[in-house]
């Protein structure tokens, strides 16, 4: 037993890398659901963004153009979700399911037609990818890092060497918190998810508020997806989101629809994912071999426990999932 191994720097570093897309998707869901629009289509929006970001980055050689393309694709799907669930008052869950399947299929079909490599994009390199940013004085070679002392290890591996999106993420949680709780927009957004009738009475358009929320959700999902294919990995492969949209949804419930808690929940799930790819470290930490499948299942088990109300009650926004019908 070596409990300190749980805090292995490589695992913590992996936590950040794997937690960031979860965090972005989770905050995306937070905006949408706080405005009363359930969104189980986070997965599909991330996937289509991951694909288009990688495809456009490869074709143009610019990762920034790729990022814009990815975000736009994600927002288009968001608007479709809005059309179905806000304008046509359809079932939001069914709409989300449709969006996930659509993204899952179209990315492979389009990738095959575009690149002919069996549903993937070619590998990205150079300016077609978000490069990791090295802090001044940080060690980059694995052998040097292994020999360094602890503060240097933390500095070189955990703090340094991430992509720009990861560093932007540090600012995003306080920004979301401030937007939600300290701005007029945030107040209206939360109100529209709890009592849209009251918001309407105050002369504010429920539809416009909900559409704004859905668009923000699309932008954040787009960012998360683009990070997957152009930051975390170098290219798109089929189904590369691998359920992250659902884990983000789980984290959102775990966090009870609040931004700081969302950071905690996504980092916890990111940590579990990072641990799942390093079974050797887990074995060192607790002394017995744990099946990786247990770690694969753990985020979902935790979520069900939370949903069951054993760790406090998770109450969703009151008007969530219901279309608003304006009185005439």
């Amino acid at each position: 037993m070596d409990l300190l191994a749980f805090f292995d720097i490589a695992v913590l570093d992996g936590t950040v890398r794997l937690g960031v897309p979860l965090l972005l998707a989770c905050l995306a869901g937070l905006f949408s659901e706080r405005a009363g629009i359930f969104d189980i289509g986070l997965e599909g929006k991330m996937l289509i963004s991951a694909f288009l970001a990688a495809g456009v980055s490869f074709t143009t050689g610019s990762v920034w153009l790729g990022l814009i393309a990815g975000i736009m694709a994600s927002v288009v799907l968001s608007l479709l979700h809005g059309l179905a669930s806000i304008t046509f008052r359809g079932n939001q869950l069914i709409s989300g399911v449709a969006i996930n399947f659509f993204a899952s299929g179209i990315t492979v079909v389009a990738a095959q037609a575009w690149f002919g490599e069996g549903g993937r994009t070619p590998s990205l390199s150079g300016a077609a990818r978000f490069e990791s940013i090295q802090f001044p004085g940080a060690l980059t070679r694995i052998r040097d890092i292994a020999k360094a002392d602890l503060p240097m290890k933390v500095y070189s591996e955990l703090l340094s060497g991430h992509t720009i999106i990861v560093y932007l993420c540090i600012l995003i949680v306080p920004f979301v918190w401030w937007t939600l709780y300290r701005t007029r927009f945030g107040l209206r957004l939360r109100a529209v998810g709890e009592n849209p009738g009251a918001v309407d009475t105050a002369g504010i358009s429920v539809y416009r508020m909900r559409y704004s929320a859905v668009i923000i959700c699309g932008v954040l999902c787009g960012l998360a997806g683009a990070y997957l294919s152009t930051g975390l990995q170098a290219g798109f492969v089929r189904e590369m989101t691998a359920g992250r949209g659902y884990i983000a949804l789980a984290a959102l419930i775990f966090a009870k629809w609040r931004p700081w808690q969302a950071l905690g929940a996504t980092m916890l799930f990111g940590y579990l994912q990072a641990l799942a790819i390093r079974p050797d470290i887990l074995e060192r930490a607790i002394g017995i071999r744990v099946q990786t499948q247990v770690l694969d299942a753990l985020p979902y088990v935790l979520t069900v426990i939370v949903l069951a109300g054993f760790v406090g009650k998770a109450i969703p926004p009151r008007a969530g999932g219901e279309a608003y019908v304006k009185e005439r």
Partner: peptide, 8 residues
């Protein structure tokens, strides 16, 4: 799913 369900 989209047309028969969500966009019904």
């Amino acid at each position: 799913i989209l047309f028969t369900g969500a966009l019904d």
